Simulated assay, not measured.
Amino acid sequence: MNFIIDHLSKSFETKKVLRDINFTFESGKIYGLLGRNGAGKTTLFNCLNKDMKADGGSFYLEEGASRRDVVPDDIGYVLSTPTVPEFLTGREFLKFFLDIHEGEIENPMPLDAYFDFMSIEPEDRDKLMKTYSHGMKNKMQMLINVIARPNILLLDEPLTSLDVVMAEEMKELLRSLKTDRITIFSTHLLDLAVDLCDEIVLLSHGELESVDKSNLDDQEFKEKIIAALKEESL
């Protein structure tokens, strides 16, 4: 399965944020979407998730010789600032999600098995989510996407504010989930992209460019990437 972006563009008044973007993402890989803060990573995700209307272009899924439009169930989106219903406990939220998707989820498990999978402690499962830390809310967002198994998983800098232990847990989880799906992980941290991702895509001046990851061991090549990102702010 391939996820193809074809001539996608987006401007805000006179500022062109996305310029005629063309790219093909392949299933089974984690793509690091690397760019400076303000480069347009979140704008790209919002267009792909159809939270924002693009000015031009299209995107679709290609399976074998057939193409089809992307539908809402194809996409999971984990925001950099977690959004969860804070008036519910973790258990209530998870039960509500499972109830409304009853019949759609393959091999559903008991609630506590999902919490165990995400390393959410028993004492936290029945607390209101308004008391959760940023990292805990992030885990709940990820848990929903683990259950839903979307074809395309968009991750908008989900590890930036997590502590070291939780960040490592999330990276291992993402590696275990990448089979049969397209994962696009946005970050402004080069070393994180190199560590986690199978492929690296540079978003600079509103365009996507694939980066040969094997070259990133070379300090001179790293410096060129950093220089390109610095130009974004000029």
Rank of each mutant, 00 (worst) to 15 (best):
F3I: 05
F3G: 13
D6S: 03
K10A: 01
S11C: 11
K15E: 13
K16V: 10
D20N: 00
G28F: 07
G28I: 09
I30L: 05
Y31G: 09
Y31A: 09
Y31E: 10
G32F: 00
G32D: 01
L33N: 13
L33R: 09
L33H: 10
L34D: 04
G35E: 05
G35W: 08
G35I: 07
G38F: 02
K41S: 08
K41I: 09
T42D: 06
F45C: 08
F45T: 06
K50N: 11
D51N: 14
D51K: 08
M52L: 15
K53I: 01
D55M: 06
Y60R: 01
E62N: 10
E62D: 04
E63P: 07
G64K: 12
G64Y: 03
A65R: 14
R67P: 03
D69C: 05
V71R: 15
I75D: 08
I75R: 04
Y77K: 09
Y77M: 09
Y77G: 02
Y77R: 03
V78P: 00
L79R: 13
T81P: 02
E86V: 10
G90L: 07
R91H: 10
E92D: 11
K95A: 14
F96P: 07
F97A: 09
L98V: 01
I105E: 10
N107D: 15
M109F: 10
F115L: 03
M118D: 05
E123Y: 13
L128S: 11
M129H: 10
K130E: 15
Y132N: 11
S133T: 12
I144A: 06
R149T: 11
I152H: 01
L153V: 06
L154D: 04
L155G: 01
D156R: 05
D156I: 10
E157N: 08
P158C: 01
L159A: 03
S161D: 12
S161W: 00
M166E: 14
A167E: 02
A167T: 02
E169I: 01
M170Y: 08
K171I: 02
L173I: 04
L174Q: 06
R175S: 13
S176V: 04
S176D: 04
K178C: 02
T179W: 04
T179A: 15
T179Q: 15
D180G: 07
R181M: 11
I182K: 02
T183D: 05
I184K: 00
S186V: 00
L189A: 05
L190G: 02
A193N: 00
A193S: 03
V201T: 10
L202D: 04
L203S: 14
L203C: 12
S204T: 14
H205V: 02
H205G: 13
H205S: 15
G206R: 11
G206C: 02
L208T: 03
E209V: 03
E209I: 03
E209S: 13
D212T: 06
S214K: 14
N215F: 01
L216V: 11
D218C: 11
D218R: 13
Q219F: 04
F221D: 12
K222D: 08
E223K: 14
E223P: 06
I225V: 10
A228Q: 15
L229D: 08
L229I: 14
